[in-house]
Structures are given as C-alpha cells and as structure tokens.
C-alpha cells in the first residue's frame, strides 16, 4: 500500500534520491511542453497559445483520476497524502500577487527553473527576483503574520465541502476542462499570432 516511502519507513537518503528523479521527470515534462518559453506561457493570457491551460489541466486531471483509482484499489493511504492547508485570506491574497507576478514576469517558479536550465537569461533574472521577494517576505514577516495565519480552516477537500464523492467532482472538473479546451482552441484560431508562434 502506498505511499511507499512513509508507509514502509524508507530511509531519508533514498527519499531524496527519489525527489531528484521525480524532479527530472517534472523538468523534462515542463520543458517538452514548452514551459521554458515565457512568450508561450504568456500566450495563455492573450489567447494565441493556450498550452498552459491544456498542460495544467490535463496533468491535474491525470493525477486526480490516478489517485481516485489507487484509492479505490486500496493501493494508497489517502490519510497520509498531503492535502494543502487552507488559510482563506492568505491563499487568495497570495494567489492574486502571484497572478500579477505571472503576467509581469512571464514565469512561475517551476517554469523559471526549467527555462533557466536551457539558458533563458530572463528566467535567471526571474529566479533572482523571486529570491529577493522571499527575502522581503522573510524580513517583513511580522507585518503579514496576522494575514498569513488568519482563518485557518484545516485541510478541507472540495469534494467534502460540496458534499460530493471525489469521483463526481473529478467528473465535473473533466467536463469543465473539456469545455475550456474547446473554447481555448477556438481562441487560438481567433487570436492567432503566427509571428510569435514561429519565434517561440
């Protein structure tokens, strides 16, 4: 029964090795998808290239369904799996600031590492900026501490909040994603920018 490492108490060293291998796969998948290009990422918000939407949702759905089936086959202990903690205000405010960072900087942390790996100088600068942003947060932590810790409501799952089975929620997400893919591909035709696509 999974997750293998915590359940079987496998050594920390092996866990770190697995982290590295998973990272290899993560980086490879991101780069192959084209997430190493900021103009491809930004295309999402102008409609000329919706790769971000396609990759992001397909990945989330694949993992979501995989977990549901693993759980059904009793191959994974869902109690051990990390579910993100939800602090209402900080999740929203943090998300809004990240969204601004995305459109201004053109990357998110994961994609910037991947882009820096193939030599994108703008990505390296983005990483430098991120480190400064984190230092700024660390140095001024006392200003945000209240907001950071406000309204903690545990690690709720959306399926429980909406009182749905996990599978039903997954089906809803899939249907929504298919509709978004369809609309997005229409947008790609409508806002087509061959000049940019050729360059990236």
């Amino acid at each position: 029964m999974g997750p293998i490492i915590p359940v079987f108490g496998i050594s920390e060293e092996l866990n770190l090795l697995i982290a590295f291998i998973i990272g290899l796969g993560f980086g490879f998948a991101l780069e192959q998808a084209g997430f190493s290009s900021s103009r491809k990422l930004a295309g999402m918000f102008y409609g000329y290239d919706i790769t971000v939407l396609k990759v992001f949702f397909t990945a989330a759905i694949t993992a979501m369904l995989g977990l549901i089936f693993l759980n059904y086959l009793e191959m994974i202990d869902m109690g051990i799996i990390y579910v993100n903690q939800y602090y209402i205000q900080s999740a929203i405010v943090g998300g809004v600031i990240m969204g601004a960072g995305f459109i201004v900087g053109g990357f998110c942390p994961g994609t910037s590492v991947c882009a820096a790996a193939i030599g994108k100088i703008d990505a390296m600068v983005f990483i430098g900026g991120s480190l400064l942003g984190i230092i700024f947060f660390g140095e001024t932590y006392s200003w945000w501490e209240e907001l950071y810790n406000k309204n903690f409501i545990g690690s709720p799952k959306l399926s429980n909040t909406l009182n749905l089975k996990d599978g039903v929620l997954a089906l809803l997400v899939v249907v929504m994603a298919v509709i978004m893919f369809w609309l997005g591909e229409k947008a790609e035709k409508r806002f087509n920018r061959d000049d940019i696509i050729k360059e990236i």
Partner: peptide, 16 residues
C-alpha cells in the same frame, strides 16, 4: 522579469 519574480516569490510565501 525581476519585478515579476519578486512578486511571485513574495506571493508564493504568503499563499503557501
């Protein structure tokens, strides 16, 4: 890129 990175870095800490 630097400003965007700083915003993202800050936001990612606040948003966990």
């Amino acid at each position: 890129a630097a400003i965007g990175g700083a915003l993202f870095g800050f936001g990612s800490q606040l948003g966990r």
